[in-house]
Design a protein around this nucleic acid. Sequence first.
DNA 1: CACGTTTTGGACAGATCGATACAAAATAGG
DNA 2: CCTATTTTGTATCGATCTGTCCAAAACGTG
Lengths: 196, 196
Amino acid sequence: MPRPKAFDEEQALDAAMRTFWANGYEATSTEDLCRATGLGRSSIYNTFTSKHELFKRALVRYTNLMTTSQLALLEDETRSAKDRLHDLFDAIIAGEEENRRDDRGLGCLTVNTTVELAARDREAAELVARDQQRRLDALTTVIGIGQRDGELTSGRDPAELARFLNAVIAGMRVAGQGGADIPTLRAIANTALDAL
Amino acid sequence: MPRPKAFDEEQALDAAMRTFWANGYEATSTEDLCRATGLGRSSIYNTFTSKHELFKRALVRYTNLMTTSQLALLEDETRSAKDRLHDLFDAIIAGEEENRRDDRGLGCLTVNTTVELAARDREAAELVARDQQRRLDALTTVIGIGQRDGELTSGRDPAELARFLNAVIAGMRVAGQGGADIPTLRAIANTALDAL
DNA sequence: CACGTTTTGGACAGATCGATACAAAATAGG
DNA sequence: CCTATTTTGTATCGATCTGTCCAAAACGTG
């Protein structure tokens, strides 16, 4: 009965996500979002309510895409704990290599959001905190397995080591945005993994 | 002959620096800067030319304050290389503890700037790159000394280890902004230092 | 084919943005 | 005390921001 939408909602959300990812929340105008999605203002507001609501949906989409694929690597029981951690860092570096503009990485939308918004946007802060917890839990589990198997020799608490790796990942993202090249990121990752 | 300024320029710059630090570049309005500094628009524009110019000066001030004091720790020849690195991380954590708002860290203005602006503000990117290079050089030197003295046992290239530590520092800043508490930051730091 | 419903485009509202204009106030030197 | 010079407060500029309004277009259905 109603007139159907002339666009794919997920596709539009994806374009919006990339725009927020590349430029941040504040620096992305609603007109930028129109251009990126190819939609008119009415369609955007009719579908996504507001810029802030659209950002939250884009952030959720980002964490679902990224974290789901990363957790799949960490939960792959066909591989050893150590190999899973290496796979994770390989994937992160491959992602950084893929998403470059002017010899700089785009970073990670959750890191960018933490830095730009966490202090004054409670909803955004909660979304990234929830995502971070999922990743920390998975990391902790894998590290525990590695310790049990004698593959990881650091005697530290697995949860602590997980937070350490998580911090290194965030640091790699920042380094990539600062212009660090792929070999540099790889060296950082290897140093971190050796610490376990 | 001229009428003298009724305010202290450095003090105003300091207030502006703190505002950019806490809220980021885009989210800081010129009116915010007026309120923070206590100055009128005319005084700000008369003294600092533009918001962007003021930001650059604030960023330079930040890097001078922070990096100078941190390099002093790294170059303190009365202490061993390992102790100097521990001193650095202690100072960073003490700084994080000092600058909290709503149980979150403010992060680090250079990290925040890298994330928010490096991709589209060449001047800001160059300022943070220059600061980062200073820090990397000092770290590399100290790590080299530690290796020569047999205090640090990792056989890795000192410059690589320096980039690793730098990434961990950035990651700690992000973690602090995400709500990590001080013991967590300390654990991350200790894990990183053990890797050397 | 006509109706009910939704989408869509474009104009526009209200607020806020960074920056400027200008006159009054203030000061050190003559 | 007067003058030259700069600062300062206020008003305001034009641009841009997010979000709304409304009429016309487009579709599934009876």
